[in-house]
């Protein structure tokens, strides 16, 4: 069996802020397999970006292990390690911030190509740049190479970011809210392109987003992990989770999202939470972090036991919810 590209084992990550230690990630167990689409969803502060950075090797875990192709980093030699790092690339949310405004597109793409000796000589460099721009549908490349980022539209800039990620032949691309700043009308084009690149190069894609409808569309054939306050609360096939959500938090999210269909969206019944307040990271509730807001709260259980991701009958996905694990169903909490 091919080992996962990346495996996070009991990963914790803390950050220090104003002398306080914030547990940004707790007990994250996650595998990214070759050529798969894995989508991390959750609201701001849930740890999805930090998880992406740990997957990419930009951040080390405070505790726990990251395995690359089945082996810990320390098992690789130095030269191998930088090669492994290179095989994982991040595409950030804001292409204005991630592309140097003083460099032309040609310069932006040639830097990593030369730095990592991906090409020999000027002709090959030029050919490679044209090939990359064609891959991301920036055609004809001759119109693009001499432009600066500000001369391109938001969608075009994001395509340049993706072309840059492709310069080093990665196996995994982490797209962190990569189309959130792009206009609705052109998002789909970029997502379709990512799908195509994935098939063409056997790329795995970790897609990080707060937009559930977008996650559903992009990762329909892949997997979804829902995060809340630093933990994964539900993980499985996207179709299973979207069609039959298990965790109360996932149910709340899905029921809260308005839809671009007047009848459907007006008929939706948003789940009523017990509280609108999102606990802060320096004061995460004990037990299940969602318990103070959860309408299915089970006193004595949810506030004491930290639920582990487990299989529950009638659900294809794994879910971290004690009432579900114990009873197989959710009952409303009545005061």
């Amino acid at each position: 069996m091919i080992p996962p590209l990346i495996e996070l084992n009991r990963v914790y990550r803390t950050f220090e802020k104003d002398g306080e230690v914030l547990p940004v990630l707790q007990d994250i167990n996650l595998q990214v397999h070759p050529a798969e689409i894995l989508c991390l969803v959750g609201e701001s502060g849930c740890g999805k970006t930090t998880t992406g950075k740990i997957i990419a090797g930009f951040l080390d875990p405070s505790q726990g292990q990251v395995l690359i192709s089945g082996k810990p980093q320390s098992a690789y030699r130095r030269s191998e390690r930088s090669k492994l790092r290179r095989s994982m690339q991040i595409v950030h949310q804001d292409p204005f911030a991630s592309l140097n405004p003083a460099h032309t597109i040609e310069q932006i793409l040639s830097f990593p190509l030369r730095r990592h000796h991906m090409v020999n000589g000027r002709n090959e460099l030029r050919r490679k740049i044209w090939e990359l721009l064609t891959l991301v549908d920036l055609t004809p490349p001759g119109d693009i190479v001499n432009k600066y980022p500000h001369q391109l539209s938001g969608g075009q800039r994001q395509r340049v970011s993706i072309a840059r990620a492709l310069t080093v032949n990665p196996q995994l691309i982490i797209a962190d809210e990569a189309v959130s700043m792009v206009d609705v009308s052109i998002r789909i084009g970029i997502l379709k392109m990512l799908h195509r690149l994935r098939e063409e190069f056997n790329l795995a894609i970790v897609f990080i987003t707060h937009d559930l409808a977008l996650a559903k569309y992009f990762a329909w054939e892949g997997r979804l992990a829902v995060m809340y306050l630093g933990r994964i609360v539900e993980i499985g096939r996207t179709q299973d989770i979207i069609q039959n959500p298990a965790h109360p938090y996932t149910r709340a999210l899905l029921s809260a999202v308005p839809e671009a269909d007047p009848y459907v969206t007006k008929k939706k019944e948003p789940m009523k939470l017990r509280s609108d307040n999102i606990p802060s990271l320096n004061n995460i509730p004990s037990g299940c972090a969602f318990n103070p807001r959860c309408p299915f709260y089970m006193p004595g259980t949810c506030d004491t036991v930290v639920p582990a991701l487990s299989n529950v009958s009638q659900f294809g996905q794994k879910v971290a919810c004690e009432p579900l694990r114990l009873r197989g169903e959710l009952r409303l909490y009545e005061t």
Partner: peptide, 24 residues
């Protein structure tokens, strides 16, 4: 029409969507 044809909907299952080519 084209805007709606580019908008993913959560409850719509597997959707065939289309971008609008070009830019404003």
């Amino acid at each position: 029409f084209s805007l709606l044809d580019a908008a993913p909907r959560l409850s719509a299952g597997d959707q065939e969507l289309h971008s609008i080519p070009g830019s404003p």
